[in-house]
Write a protein that binds this DNA or RNA. Structure first.
Length: 855
RNA sequence: GGGCACGUAGAUCAGCGGAAGAUCGCUGCUUUCGCAAAGCAGAGGUCGGGGGUUCAAAUCCCCCCGUGUCCA
């Protein structure tokens, strides 16, 4: 980055000097007399015991000082965004204040909610998890205070000059930092394809803030100026508080009384981890994360389990819900939403606590057993085993060691060994703004005017063809709904041709015809949509919203839609929930959702600016995931459920008809799926089910209400018949065995063995059975030959001392080209096609006699 | 989303290329006034599903499904 980028009038006119740090080699600006920048590791912490600011601030006071400062200087104060970034599909969590405005605001697609603005955004970073409690300054959740400005070519709010000016004024005049103590270090920031110069603000060893100026797009080596430039600042609230108090660790300064309370029971490190995790969990759980084994839920589980482990090691420790509650109440003064839904939060935590206890118990059993086995083999448990156990059973090494009689040393770099097991993994990304199997449309083609948004009831229309590609036709306007948002596409006709699929590519809707299009650009076509299918899809889609609302009401606010599918035949919704839905809960959901249908509430669909919709309804709008665009289409079931959704909907709930829940299943850890039908389809299904029931009853010859007992009876009979047939088969084989033994031509006693050799035509498995029956006594040598499908099988079984079944088989091999093998008590060989089975039987018999005699 | 572990009798699990096992529970008999207990006998298995390799697969390979766990 060119040095001129940092050469601000504010620095030059203000008497700042540009120097090069003797530590890191970076250039920096300062009023002071330093040869090094004032950030670790170029200098040590100097503020411990010597606070940086004029007076000590608690967390709330500092946040208020910051936001107030910028409010007084023309910034609008914004409430925090959720810690789970539902409006994005590229990250799980909000990791910085700028995440709130990416990608729609920073790309220029949507206007900022205010400009300039100031915010203190709770942000999550799991990268330093291991440092929490150890370093004295790391947190999993921290608040990033910020002031942001978004500059358009026609409207510049402010950029570098004013940003640094504001920052400097805040630090020195508002907070009373010595102007000479600050250094502004030149850096380059890059992320998400954008980059720009940035300044790292340091004092007394601490990096207090980063001032980023996003102004370029990277195009290979070239830097292209962005049309919209962005001031992205980040001030660490916790660091400011710490610097103002000069305590030994940041935790004491930030968490105050609650931390001191924990310190009475726990050592400093454990206290810090507990309180840090409790804070992060309060935000995560209130923002609707359900602990699970994947995605964002995993991080909640990680924090919960780390906390539970610490608590379990101390007998007089409080339980986890109390710890969370204590911290949650404190936070609710500043974030009122954290005071709500405490019961729901408690239930989630209790369920998770049980699960963890179960997991650990399971692991303990496995560990004890494995050690017993290893010791029986003369071996013992090694450090590697601890790594495998942690990875596959979830048991931490210190817990595993407790279970072992001869514990190995825990490998010194335990977590590195765990990481090494995950090296070959690759993260994957997705997100396509296009239906699969639909070709790209040239950008010169005008975007399709989508009419189904405005009026979902119109099913016939006139339009002009604007683009043709094989069977794919793009119209200037359409009422056809393309597959999207979990709703499958409409069907119907364009002219006389059937529309077999409808998809979307960016701003274009493509109609796929049954065969290559006879239409040409400019043609006027008549479109007709299959009205029955459309109505059913509308009913299912609206039913999905109603169920989502009822699920949240009955199960709790942790319920979020995790996926949905709306087809004419059946609809499904997947939601996050921490345990299977109980039958009683399901009844309540069923009643509630059908009550809403009967109440005939209006369902309004309209477009609204993203910013305004978020303000009015909150982020629960994003049930269907991240939605692109500056405007959201809001679907509002009056007084019940509001979601951003592009689907076709009924205008009143009664149109949905009775909703019949067909099935509930747990499809993943933390996710349950409901299948249901409504409208005509629900009636159809009911008729089908009744018919099936009647048919089944008729076949069984009982009345439908006696079906269960009838089936019970039938199963008993089947069981009895099976038992009988099995015992008959065995009787037959026993009869055959007795027959063979009684026949002097087949059974002869030689030496100490009775040799039974016979040709029997039986299945291979029956040969074994028969041999087993014949070998119930000691001193038997059984040779059975059988031919099936042109392949001869020779089976040898032996209980004769000193006569090996395998040996007999080998002796017969020269006469019988066959593959086979076995052990001394049983051996099998299957001959090549045409191999002489009779001669093999003879050869085996002679060999067996010879062996029995000599043995 | 990926790695790893696991899936065998009603339950808990062993077996990890050569004829499906143990313990508990269950049924019957012996014993007892009855129960418990003990002894004896017995029932109970598509070895998660589907492909493949092999003369032979619970066992080895591949693909699914399910459970758990770790990592993003």
């Amino acid at each position: 980055m060119d040095a001129a980028e940092y050469d601000l009038a504010f620095f030059r006119d203000g008497g700042f000097r540009r120097r090069t740090c003797a530590g890191c080699g970076q250039a920096f600006w300062t009023l002071g007399d330093f040869d090094r920048c004032q950030e670790a590791p170029c200098r040590d912490y100097g503020f411990v015991g010597r606070p940086l600011f004029a007076r000590p601030y608690a967390l709330r006071a500092m946040r208020e000082a910051f936001l107030g400062f910028f409010e007084h200087r023309g910034h609008t104060r914004l409430r925090r965004y959720p810690t789970v970034a539902r409006w994005r599909n590229d990250v799980f969590f909000t990791q910085a204040s700028i995440y709130d405005f990416q990608p729609w605001v920073t790309s220029g697609a949507a206007p900022p909610p205010a400009n300039p603005l100031t915010i203190s955004q709770p942000s999550l970073r799991f990268i330093d998890l291991e440092e929490v409690g150890v370093s004295g300054r790391h947190f999993t959740l921290f608040e990033m205070m910020a002031h942001h400005a978004f500059n358009r070519p026609d409207h510049e709010v402010y950029f570098k000059q004013r940003t640094v000016e504001l920052c400097h004024e805040l630090l020195t005049e508002e907070l009373g930092l010595d102007p000479k103590a600050v250094t502004y270090k030149e850096e380059v920031w890059e992320g998400g394809g954008n980059l720009g110069p940035s300044l790292s603000v340091g004092a007394s060893g601490l990096e207090l803030a980063t001032l980023v100026f996003m102004e370029y797009v990277r195009d290979g080596e070239r830097l292209v100026p962005m049309p919209l430039t962005v001031v992205d600042t980040g001030y660490g609230l916790e660091r400011f508080v710490w610097a103002s108090q000069g305590t030994k660790t940041a935790y004491e300064a930030v968490f105050g009384g609650a931390y001191d309370e924990l310190r009475r029971t726990f050592p400093p490190r454990e206290s810090a981890i507990l309180i840090d995790h409790a804070r992060a969990l309060n935000f995560l759980l209130v923002d609707g994360v359900v602990p699970s084994n994947g995605k964002e839920g995993y991080f909640a589980r990680l924090l919960l389990r780390r906390s539970l482990r610490i608590l379990s090691k101390t007998p007089e420790a409080p339980d986890l819900p109390s710890v969370l509650d204590r911290v949650g109440r404190e936070l609710s003064h500043d974030f009122p939403e954290l005071g709500e839904h405490r019961d729901d939060l408690r239930r989630v935590v209790e369920a998770e606590t049980e699960r963890y206890a179960e997991a650990i118990e399971r692991a303990r059993v496995t560990i004890r057993r494995t050690e017993a086995k290893l010791r029986a083999e003369g071996s013992r448990v090694r450090g590697d085993d601890l790594v495998v156990w942690y990875d596959s059973l979830g048991v931490p090494p210190d817990v595993a060691v407790e279970e072992l009689a001869e514990p190995p040393a825990i490998p010194p770099e335990f977590y590195k060994l765990v990481a090494a097991r995950h090296e070959s993994e690759r993260p994957t990304t997705d997100y396509v703004d296009a239906s699969e199997g639909f070709p790209a449309v040239p950008t010169s083609v005008a975007p399709t005017e989508v009419l189904y948004y405005l009026d979902p009831y119109t099913v016939a229309f006139e339009a002009h063809v604007v683009h043709v590609d094989g069977p794919f036709v793009v119209l200037d306007r359409t009422y056809f709904y393309p597959t999207g948002g979990g709703q499958v596409a409409d069907r119907g006709h364009l002219g006389d041709l059937e529309v077999v699929d409808v998809g979307r590519r960016g701003p274009h809707v493509l109609h796929k015809l049954e065969r290559p299009s006879p239409f040409h650009v400019g043609d006027r076509v008549h479109g007709r949509i299959d009205p029955t299918r459309r109505t059913q899809l509308m009913q299912h889609h609206t039913a999905t919203h109603l169920l989502n609302g009822a699920l949240r009401e009955v199960l709790g606010p942790h319920v979020w839609q995790a996926g949905a599918h709306k087809a004419p035949e059946v609809a499904r919704i997947d939601v996050t929930h921490f345990r299977p839905i109980a039958p009683e809960e399901l009844r309540r959901i069923d009643r509630r959702v059908n009550a809403i249908v009967r109440e005939d509430r209006p369902v309004k669909s309209y477009f609204e600016s993203r910013t305004e919709a978020e303000r009015r309804f909150g982020f629960t709008l994003y049930q269907g995931g991240a939605v692109p665009g500056k405007e959201l289409r809001v679907v509002e079931v009056e007084g019940f459920d509001v979601e951003a959704c592009g689907g076709t909907h009924c205008t009143h709930t009664s149109e949905v008809g009775a909703i019949q829940i067909l099935d509930v299943e747990r499809i993943q850890d933390g996710i349950v799926r409901l299948s249901y039908a409504s409208g005509e389809r629900a009636l159809e299904l009911r008729e089908e089910h009744e018919a099936i029931l009647k048919e089944a009853a008729k076949r069984l010859g009982v009345a439908p209400d006696h079906l269960p007992s009838g089936i019970e009876r039938l199963l008993g009979e089947v069981e009895e018949a099976r038992r009988l047939s099995r015992s008959r088969a065995r009787t037959d084989l026993e009869g055959l065995a007795a027959e063979l033994l009684a026949d002097p031509k087949r059974a002869t006693t030689v030496g100490r063995a009775t040799v039974v050799a016979a040709r029997v035509e039986l299945e291979r498995s029956a040969l074994g059975e028969l041999s087993k029956l014949l070998c119930r006594q000691e001193g038997r040598l059984v040779i059975l030959a059988s031919e099936r499908d042109g392949k001869g099988t020779l089976f040898v079984g032996s209980t004769a001392p000193g006569v090996s079944a395998l040996g007999v088989l080998e002796a017969a091999r020269p006469a019988f080209s066959a593959k086979g093998g076995g052990n001394p008590s049983a051996a099998t060989a299957v001959g090549e096609p045409g191999a002489p089975l009779e001669q093999a039987l003879e050869a085996a018999r002679s060999a067996a006699r010879a062996m029995a005699t000599s043995g």
